[in-house]
């Protein structure tokens, strides 16, 4: 079954903010993840804020992040951009991204 990503992701993010405190230790290469994240933060706010139809991806449990990225990679989720970008990430790169974004804290909205 194909999930609607734009509905599913904020729910996961909400769960993530509750679970972040007892997340497993990072197994991914955070420095690699920070570099790879350059592609992600061209759309997704590094502050963890949602904007437009672009959902937040900060502070998720790493296993959730990895599962979502793999579902895009396998084209189980719709979105051409995410399928394309996830499609060329290998497992260690996805784990690196999960470690990096998982380590970031949601920042309060300014203004």
């Amino acid at each position: 079954m194909k999930m609607r990503p734009l509905i599913a992701l904020p729910m996961i993010a909400m769960a993530a903010s509750c679970l972040a405190a007892r997340a497993e230790p990072a197994k991914g290469d955070r420095a690699l993840g920070e570099y790879l994240a350059g592609e992600c933060v061209a759309c997704h706010q590094v502050t963890g804020q949602a904007s437009g139809a672009v959902p937040p991806i900060v502070a998720w449990p790493e296993d959730q992040f990895i599962a979502v990225m793999k579902s895009y990679k396998n084209k189980d989720r719709d979105n051409q951009i995410m399928q394309t970008l996830a499609g060329r990430l290998n497992t260690s790169e996805i784990e690196a991204l999960a470690a990096y974004f998982g380590s970031l804290a949601l920042q309060p909205m300014k203004n």
Partner: peptide, 30 residues
Amino acid sequence: ETFVSKNGETQTMRKEQQGENMGWYAGITN
């Protein structure tokens, strides 16, 4: 790998893509 929208996409999808467009602008300018 490249992608491009297709003719015949649903109005819902096209509207979502405008949401992406606006979200992208906020994200990338930040």
